[in-house]
Design a protein around this nucleic acid. Structure first.
Lengths: 344, 344
DNA sequence: GTTGACACCCAAAACGTTTTCAGTTATAAA
DNA sequence: TTTATAACTGAAAACGTTTTGGGTGTCAAC
């Protein structure tokens, strides 16, 4: 009835706790016959090692942590779900578990990090959704605790930590070039909040694209949203009121793009014919909208997998081959920017 | 440099480990002045309690577990992502963490349960995606370990465990009634694999609906898929070949419904006008398809939240008010079954 | 001047492992 | 026969907490 421990197996077999531990641990210095006996008794008694005790003694948890605000990774935001999927895959391969700590919206995120990391609950953490000069990264570096970052610092700031990020500057650049190639030249942009690190890259990519096409940049063509569909809708309405000559809008994520699409359609435009909409993320919903959404795709699941692999290497004390990895995104052209896609 | 522990604080303040522990733990039998001193020193030294040691000593982890195959909770299957979101919310409120253990596809799921549960890593677990007479449930019951179940046993079998499930029998029944009310009477059904517990309820709901409408049941109108979009596509093609008189298809989840929709459209049908398609789950993509998908909606996030709340109660030794909860799903009528929705 | 009550503090045990170090026996070499 | 070596085993320490079960000292009451 009471939990079966090394001690109880020791008592049952007549061997010491040490020997039982070594036998089960597969050490060489235990007689083959005694190991057989011990293994069998352990089996019969249904022994399961107490992982917490093992963690305490060995100072290893075989667990990695992901800390997230509780309102994220939802259908409003597939990003976390996909990242978790990739991480989970890699973790399963390496026999690690994933500790997911959600903190309430108002709470200080740093507290969660201090608790989990300082509390020795994980061997490493994955930091996602980076801010400009992210304090979480500073904290982890000061502790010299293994971590990897999904994302990176804002443009111009140092990236002296292991990270993987999509080259979203290039992604938006490709999007602009494509939209220009379709004949649209008055292009608006809906950006994420300014404290997110990647916002600067998306703006830079936009300017790159315009410059390449020889189009002037106008401040009033750019507006900030908060990544939700609703905010995309509002932003597009504001943008159109402010600059009615617009014939295209690029949003920094698909959700805002879908909101923008709705706003634009309400204004009587025929998206894909007289107006272009471009997104970023390639969320599943974008395939099924009408018109389907042209977007920039980043392989989030794969990024999650590679991040985890990278973290495992760091935990094991190896130096990962790529300490900062920029992934080239791909442009997925669909009907919202392209006549040819419109009638299948 | 070395980690700051109760011991180091004891040394620094001159008090014993016991007193430091009791001071930080908020016990009453320590002088207010000494507590102040200890708190301050702990603060200065940046003390973070070692949670693993605490867990070992107190035999409580303040962690709940969710074990899932690593291919699940993806954009192919929003279910897990949403469930995790709900669980995470509730967990954040109660200061619990979530341990997510993914195991590789081929591995025995029971091993993961034995490892996590037997290894004392969690105070309770949430079992999702139940099978008929699920061995995981039998295991947890035999151990008398706190757990709750998302789903329940197959029809006719006992549910002697705490669970929350959507009443999918009623859900499909409502769907059939609605489709019949739109004038369709030759209705096919695409079911999930037979070993999943809820398959029987969906079939029963289908038969209920037919019976109520006075329509005969035909075996050849029913086919099994594996919940993926691709399998829905194949299943629908088979169904149409087998019974060309069909004018409607209900799929047991949205993904298969979308696959079926594609197959039906390829055959030249005009879904929403001369053919009806119904799904189940209300995944976000269904809003944006063309035509948009009529579906049965279950509040997965809320179910996750309530499951977690229920589990916390059980862990705390209370008896939850609802030990088995059936949630009434809602029918979301969109264009794939309804003319009126077709031209907004 | 003893007694009780109270406030405060601490040594040691316990949680269940892993590992270090030393001990015991059998065997081979000298 | 002694000695060195190898093969196996075990006692005890350690990981960092919390809790048990006293201690000590002060003060009021008798």
């Amino acid at each position: 009835m009471s939990p079966v421990t090394l001690k109880s197996i020791a008592k049952a077999t007549g061997y010491s706790i040490t020997t039982v531990s070594r036998a089960l641990g597969g050490h060489t210095d235990v007689n083959e016959e005694t190991r057989r006996r011990i293994l069998q008794v352990a089996q019969e008694m249904g022994y399961q090692p107490n992982l917490v005790a093992r963690q305490l003694r060995s100072q290893r948890t075989y667990t990695i942590g992901l800390i997230s605000p509780s309102y994220m990774y939802s259908h409003e935001d597939d990003f976390f779900a996909l990242l978790i999927k990739g991480i989970g895959r890699a973790a399963a391969r390496h026999q690690y578990d994933l500790l997911l700590s959600s903190h309430l919206h108002g709470d200080d995120e740093m507290d969660a990090y201090r608790r989990i990391v300082g509390g020795n609950r994980v061997d490493g953490v994955i930091v996602a959704r980076t801010y400009r000069d992210d304090p979480r990264i500073a904290y982890l570096k000061s502790l010299n605790h293994p971590f990897v970052v999904s994302g990176r610092n804002a443009p111009g700031l140092p990236n002296d930590f292991p990270f993987i990020d999509a080259d979203s500057q290039l992604g938006i650049h490709m999007m602009v070039s494509h939209i220009v190639s379709q004949g649209y030249r008055e292009i608006g942009l809906i950006l994420p909040p300014d404290d997110l690190a990647f916002t600067g890259y998306r703006l830079a990519g936009y300017r790159d694209g315009l410059a390449e096409a020889g189009i002037d940049y106008h401040d009033e063509y750019v507006i900030y949203g908060d990544l939700t569909l609703e905010s995309g809708y509002q932003a597009a309405k504001t943008l159109l009121a402010r600059a009615p000559q617009l014939t295209a809008i690029i949003a920094a994520n698909d959700l805002m793009a879908l909101g923008a699409m709705r706003a634009v359609q309400e204004q009587g435009f025929h998206v894909g014919h007289d107006f272009a909409i471009g997104g970023f993320d390639n969320i599943p919903a974008g395939q099924h909208t009408s018109p389907s959404l042209t977007t920039v795709s980043q392989p989030i699941i794969e990024i999650g997998e590679r991040l985890a692999e990278m973290l495992f290497q760091i935990i094991e004390g190896e130096t990962p081959a790529d300490n900062g990895l920029l992934i080239e995104p791909t442009l997925v052209i669909r009907a919202s920017t392209n006549h040819a896609h419109n009638q299948p």
